[in-house]
């Protein structure tokens, strides 16, 4: 009943490439499962190419249109070239969160290394694309316009710090939500088992059980919401790269 146990990473197939540990772990297994499940929805689900879609095709189309609208709304027409990336990110995070809610599974997004890598990928893309498209004008991002020159150094410092903290806040938000949610669920579930084994106290065991049910619903919401938040923040940051300057 150790609530941390669910985040343990164990190799399934130990593998070392060039002296680097590249073992196929339970985390890697669930990454593969996530990719397969999401691809099944998006590729097999839309395979009929029906004019009047069935349920799965409808779900795939709705996801597509939802993300397309989100990207278009935040990034404009230019932002649509990042649509495949944002969509992939959203679906990967969403499926990781949702699959992680199934008991006995592993939650890929509960690993800070995973979320931080994704955040670094986003910020790296923002910086690279910003410099590629605008050159050094991209640095105008850190210079707010219409400010008194005396205040400028101070404000630029704040902008730089806020920019640098983006990957941290982006990754920690997702990671902490998943970690905390799963620990809470596990602890509540543990209460049920402990109370059932505690003689007369077993009569109050339904209380934490009800709590677990409620929390599961809440975690479902969090899983969707955090995936959406991750995607929309990615859009917002990418928009900075497309249209720098305030």
């Amino acid at each position: 009943m150790d609530p941390i146990h669910q985040f343990q990473i164990a190799p399934i197939y130990p593998l070392h490439v060039l002296g680097i540990d590249a073992s196929f772990t339970n985390a890697a297994l669930f990454m593969v499962i996530v990719v397969l499940a999401a691809s099944a929805l998006m590729i097999l689900g839309t395979f009929p190419k029906a004019l009047v879609p069935g349920r799965i095709q409808s779900a795939a189309e709705m996801t597509y249109e939802f993300m397309a609208n989100t990207v278009h709304l935040t990034g404009g027409h230019d932002g649509m070239k990042f649509f495949p990336f944002v969509f992939t990110l959203f679906l990967f995070v969403l499926f990781s969160n949702l699959i992680g809610l199934i008991p006995y599974t592993f939650t890929v997004t509960s690993q800070i290394f995973v979320t931080f890598s994704l955040a670094i990928l986003v910020i790296g893309l923002v910086i690279c694309y910003g410099l590629y498209r605008h050159g050094l004008h991209f640095l105008n991002l850190f210079v707010p316009s219409g400010v008194h020159p005396a205040l400028l150094p101070f404000l630029v410092m704040i902008e730089v710090i806020s920019f640098l903290s983006r990957p941290i806040s982006l990754s920690v938000r997702l990671f902490a939500n998943m970690l905390a949610g799963h620990i809470t669920l596990k602890v509540m579930g543990g209460f049920v088992a402990s109370l059932l084994g505690a003689g007369i106290y077993s009569v109050i065991a339904p209380l934490p059980l009800a709590m677990t049910v409620a929390l599961t619903a809440f975690e479902l919401l969090v899983a969707l919401l955090q995936a959406y938040v991750f995607a929309i923040l990615t859009c917002v940051y990418l928009n900075d790269a497309i249209h720098p300057g305030h």
Partner: peptide, 25 residues
């Protein structure tokens, strides 16, 4: 191991989405 497998799976997933799924939809 996490980063390597994340790069592999996410990269594959990106290719699947951008080359197959999204054009199809």
């Amino acid at each position: 191991p996490l980063i390597i497998w994340l790069a592999l799976t996410f990269g594959l997933f990106y290719l699947l989405m951008s080359k197959v799924a999204l054009p199809q939809v």
